[in-house]
Design a protein around this nucleic acid. Structure first.
Length: 500
RNA sequence: GAUUCCGUAGCUCAGCCGGUAGAGCAAUACACUUUUAAUGUAUGGGUCCUGGGUUCGAAUCCCAGCGGAAUCACCA
């Protein structure tokens, strides 16, 4: 095992600490009474309750002044300065606890617990004057120290994405703001959960390991069940299970579903990701648009106190209602072509005029989808419901009430990206069987993402499913918007990477 | 999966017309009793990603591999 100079020194310090009779990893609890941020927020001179304060955290910086030191202690809430004077922590003749242990053997990154009283230094810094100090855990590796000056300039930032993501624990300790992103993500999920629960929705758990990976068009991860000796799949979607629960008589079910798709990794894709799905009986996709815009408006308000959210160069308004636009109208708006009455041949010509590569396998629906995603999608920065997709692309969606070539589907576009996908759910079991059979034909022709036929799901539909609206909302992408992050890796604690 | 760029001290980076490996922070030692990213002085620290090749000589040039980033493809 190769150790750097600094690691060797820390191991020597560890041994020296033990030689002084001090436990480097004590077992007993340390009774924390306060947190740094709270003290800094509420402390006033002469205030009660600040004379027996117990804090615990990492030492992040030491300013050595000889017989006294200033140090910065970082706990889960933030940093606070502590003042350690030799004669306070070593009242007798034996000064080793300060001269040896504190000044020489403690390192940046070590966890300590301190007890003392809060005061304000002559430069105005709220500080804990330490009366006693205890080592709680010794750190054997040096942290990359990031410094920030009074103007907010950051020096020596720990900013290599590979190291930050592989060692997120270090990233969280040293990079201010990383924690805040994840706290905001958590608050976002809590807000959504509260919103749904308040309306009577039931949070449910459905299988992650599935026999048939249904509900979406994607390549699954395959595994194997030994006792049953059958292949199993990590779910690409939980859609078909939530619909079974609607068949069973629940009015509104939801699940934050961790899905797995065996596809590329880039700044908007991770092999496992989270989608909120919910299904509501007796509703349609118009109702779903209303509840979705209310939900997102609520999330923006809870997280930021405003509906205007800054995302990169844009300010995005989450104020409901959002714009609604048919996909064919969107194409007319951004290409000038009216494709509503066109046949496949006409669509192919237009696609080619627009510089889109086409091939013979593309049907009408696929061509419309291509034209939209190549030429239109990027333009929808403000939240927009794109509605009424071609039927070919949507095997689980009810046909449009007024136009049988379309389906009652919308995708919510924000910042040029799809954030949500929703339908009036197909509940006609005969139509559903035909659509599955069409998918099966595509699969036989080599389309790896075409859907499997799920006979049990068809059986469920044959028992009868009420008219239902359903939606999937990309939680990671929504978190990117709400935290103004440009990569999915920044909103996942441990994004997938190649093993070291 | 394709293309381009990158990989040097614990961290951030320089060095790359081939000629003994550099800086700042961090570390070590000493001095300093209230400091605010950076007190002063001194010191130590590197399989220059890995493996091959060219060369008298490679961190530097060439090839392959590994890892990362960006763009594209697939997808949410």
């Amino acid at each position: 095992m190769h150790l750097s100079e600094q690691e060797i020194i820390r191991r020597q310090n560890l041994q020296a600490i033990e030689a002084l009779g001090i436990a480097p990893y004590p077992a007993e609890l340390f009774d924390v009474s306060h947190h740094a941020a709270h003290i800094k927020a509420v402390y006033q001179e002469g205030a009660e309750g600040f004379d027996n304060v117990r804090l615990a955290g990492r030492i992040m910086m030491v300013r050595d002044m000889g017989k006294a030191c200033f140090a910065e202690l970082q706990d889960s809430s933030g940093r606070i300065q502590i003042y350690v004077r030799r004669d306070d922590i070593c009242p007798g003749d034996d000064k080793r606890l300060f001269d040896e242990f504190f000044k020489k053997l403690l390192d940046i990154g070590d966890f300590i617990g301190v007890e003392g009283f809060v005061f304000r230094t002559r430069t105005g810094e709220i500080t804990l004057h330490v009366r006693s100090l205890k080592l709680l855990s010794k750190a054997l590796r040096p942290l990359p120290i990031v410094k920030t000056d009074a103007e907010g300039n950051v020096y020596d930032a720990f900013n290599d994405p590979e190291l930050r993501h592989r060692m997120r624990y270090v990233d969280l300790v040293v990079n201010a703001g990383v924690k805040d992103t994840f706290i905001l993500r958590s608050k976002m999920i809590r807000t959504i959960r509260n919103f749904l629960d308040a309306r009577g929705a039931l949070e449910v758990d459905t299988p992650v390991l599935q026999n048939i990976p249904g509900g979406a068009a994607a390549r699954p991860f395959i595994t194997h069940h030994n006792a049953l000796d059958i292949p199993m799949y990590l779910r690409i979607s939980n859609e078909l299970y939530l619909k079974r629960l609607i068949v069973g008589g629940f009015d509104w079910v939801y699940e934050f579903s961790r899905n797995f798709r065996n596809e590329g990794i880039d700044r908007t894709h991770n092999p496992e990701f989270t989608i909120l799905e919910f299904y509501v009986a007796y509703k349609d996709y118009h109702w779903m648009m209303e509840i979705t815009e209310q939900l997102l408006e609520k999330v923006a308000l809870e997280l930021h106190g405003t509906t205007d959210i800054t995302v990169g160069e844009h300010v995005i308004s989450f104020k409901a209602p959002f714009r609604r636009l048919g996909i064919l109208d969107a194409i007319r708006e951004h290409t000038g072509y009216d494709v509503s009455q066109m046949d496949e041949k006409g669509l192919r010509e237009i696609a080619q005029n627009l510089g889109i590569e086409t091939d013979a396998s593309m049907g009408k629906g696929k061509l419309i989808d291509e034209i939209f995603s190549e030429k239109c999608e990027d333009h929808f920065i403000q939240p927009t419901f794109i509605m009424d997709y071609p039927v070919e692309m949507s095997p689980l969606t009810k046909r449009h009430r007024a136009n049988p070539e379309l389906v009652e589907r919308f995708e919510l576009m924000i910042n040029g990206k799809e954030i949500a996908n929703a339908y009036s759910e197909l509940n006609d079991p005969i139509d559903q069987r035909e659509r599955f059979e069409e998918q099966a034909r595509l699969k036989e022709r080599g389309d790896e993402e075409a859907m499997f036929i799920d006979h049990d799901f068809l059986r469920a539909l044959e028992f009868g499913m009420p008219p239902t609206a359903g939606i999937g909302i990309g939680i990671d992408r929504l978190a990117m918007l709400m935290t103004n992050q440009r990569t999915i890796q920044e909103v996942l604690f441990f994004p997938q990477m190649r093993p070291e």
